[in-house]
């Protein structure tokens, strides 16, 4: 039988993450976001981090642990995101203050390019070309190449030290299943990382109890599992409040 990858708690799972790590955080607009692991990382205090995620968070209420909080906590050197500002010009993220003051660096990446850079890193592909972003500000000074009469941008793989993820179901071997829109970046981040930590919603299954045909992320990519306790101890997604218009 494989050795169980279950850890006792979130603090134990994040304990060894050193300063200077590059960490990918799963999640898109709530589902699949490792709220509990982020909260544990806030308490653990690792600094000088590079954080890879879709957004910096902070645009919605109730606010859940997000990358912006790690920035506000002085733990982040750089973020790599497809949003470093709110989607509405009238919303101002707490993150914006740190960016404007030069207290954090930001690399803004189109979302499909971000996903593909992670996928490439997890697939042994060092770089690739994409038509995305050609003719825009993000293409300035970049290497381009013409394929089939169309200009493409060179993009590099984005390997990470750690991935912090959330899944619906796991077995002791680390095989994962996501539910609905919870999947998002999680599978590609798992493959792009050297060490993968997962908070799991359902009770852990024994190895052999999950149908191999139904596995979304194979356990060989997964290292530490933590079961999310029921609220209020564990953090669960809440319905996002509509903002006043």
């Amino acid at each position: 039988m494989p050795k169980s990858k279950l850890f006792a708690g979130f603090a134990e799972a994040v304990a060894g993450i050193p300063d200077g790590s590059t960490i990918a955080f799963g999640g898109f607009a709530g589902p699949g976001t490792p709220f509990n692991l982020i909260r544990a990382l806030l308490a653990q205090g690792a600094r000088n981090l590079t954080c890879v995620s879709n957004t910096t968070g902070g645009a919605h209420q109730p606010r859940m642990p997000d990358i912006g909080m790690l920035v506000e906590n002085g733990q982040v050197r750089k973020v790599v995101c497809s949003f470093t500002a709110a989607t509405r010009p009238t919303d101002v993220l707490p993150f914006a203050r740190f960016l404007e003051a030069g207290q954090v660096e930001a690399e803004l990446v189109p979302q499909g390019t971000l996903a593909e850079r992670l996928r490439a890193a997890g697939s042994g592909i060092p770089a690739f070309y994409t038509p995305t972003g050609v003719g825009t500000e993000i293409a300035e000074g970049r290497e381009t190449r013409n394929f089939n009469g169309r200009e493409h941008l060179l993009e590099h793989a984005l390997p990470v030290d750690y991935a912090l993820l959330r899944a619906c179901q796991a077995d002791e071997a680390g095989n994962l299943r996501y539910r609905l829109a919870q999947r998002n970046f999680n599978p590609v981040m798992a493959m792009a990382a050297r060490t993968v930590l997962v908070e799991v919603e359902e009770e852990l299954l024994p190895a052999g109890a999950m149908d191999p045909d139904a596995v979304h992320t194979p356990g060989i990519f997964v290292h530490r599992l933590v079961r999310i306790p029921p609220p209020p101890d564990g953090l669960w997604p809440a319905r996002r409040l509509e903002r006043a218009r």
Binding site: F83, A85, T87, L108, P110
Partner: peptide, 10 residues
């Protein structure tokens, strides 16, 4: 400073 590209460019 900063922006919101999301999936728009792709």
């Amino acid at each position: 400073k900063g922006g919101g590209i999301g999936g728009a460019m792709d």
